[in-house]
Simulated scan of single mutants.
Amino acid sequence: MSAFVASGPVDSGRINTDPFWPSIDLDHLRATLRIDASVTPARLETAVIAAVVNLNRELGEWRTTQLAAGYSTLDEVPGDRIKDVSVQVHLYRRAIEAGTGAEVCERYRDYSATNTGANKAVELTPNIDDYRRDLRWAIRDFLGRPRTTVELI
C-alpha cells in the first residue's frame, strides 16, 4: 500500500497524492462541477481527499502492476491520448470529479435545515446517484471492464 500525502489548496490549489497519480487542480474541478462559493475551499478539499482516498485504494492493485512494469506515473502507462494527455489520466480525473460531486451533494443537506434546504436535498438526490454512476463507469472504463454485468438466473 502506498503512502498518502495530501496538500492544498494553500498556494497551488492542488491536491497531491502518491507521485504515481496526477495531482488534482481544485479550481478546474470546481469549474467542471460548477461548484459555487457556498462550498468553501476547506469543504471542497475534504470532498476531494475523500474521493482520492477511495479511488486510490480501489485502483491500488492496478497501480502496483504498472509500477512493477516500470511505469512511475499514470501518464507513462502506454495507451491512447487526448489533447496530449493519457486517456487513463482523463478517466482518473473523471472518477475524482464524480466522487467529489457525490460527496459535495450529499453534504449539501447540512447547509440548511429549512424547508428550502430539505427541498434542495431532495432535488439533489438524482444528482448524487448520477455522480455515483459516473464514478463506477469511470473506474470500469479505466480498468477496461464492461460497464454492466448481466447474469441469467
Rank of each mutant, 00 (worst) to 15 (best):
A3H: 04
A3F: 03
A3C: 06
F4E: 09
F4I: 12
G8D: 06
D11W: 01
S12A: 11
G13Y: 04
I15G: 02
N16F: 03
N16Q: 04
T17L: 01
D18R: 04
P22V: 14
I24M: 02
D25F: 08
L26E: 05
D27Q: 12
A31R: 14
A31E: 04
A31P: 03
L33D: 06
R34L: 13
I35G: 00
D36N: 13
A37T: 13
A37V: 15
S38C: 13
V39L: 11
P41Q: 07
A42H: 07
R43C: 07
L44Y: 08
T46V: 13
T46N: 06
A47I: 13
A47G: 06
A47T: 10
V48L: 04
I49P: 00
I49E: 01
A50D: 06
A50I: 10
A50Y: 00
A50S: 09
V53W: 00
N54R: 10
L55W: 08
N56D: 09
R57Q: 07
L59A: 02
L59G: 01
G60R: 12
G60D: 12
R63A: 08
T64L: 10
L67N: 01
A68I: 03
A69N: 11
A69R: 14
A69Q: 12
S72C: 06
T73F: 03
L74K: 03
P78L: 14
D80Y: 07
R81N: 08
K83M: 10
K83I: 10
D84E: 15
V85M: 09
V87T: 15
V87S: 07
V89G: 00
L91A: 03
L91G: 01
L91F: 02
Y92V: 06
I96K: 00
E97A: 15
G101S: 13
E103Q: 12
V104W: 00
C105L: 15
R107F: 07
R109W: 04
R109Y: 01
R109E: 08
Y111N: 11
Y111C: 07
S112L: 11
A118V: 15
N119H: 09
A121P: 05
V122K: 08
E123M: 15
T125C: 06
N127F: 00
D130Q: 14
Y131C: 05
D134G: 13
R136E: 11
R140M: 07
D141P: 03
F142Y: 06
G144L: 07
P146Y: 05
T148R: 08
T148L: 15
L152M: 14
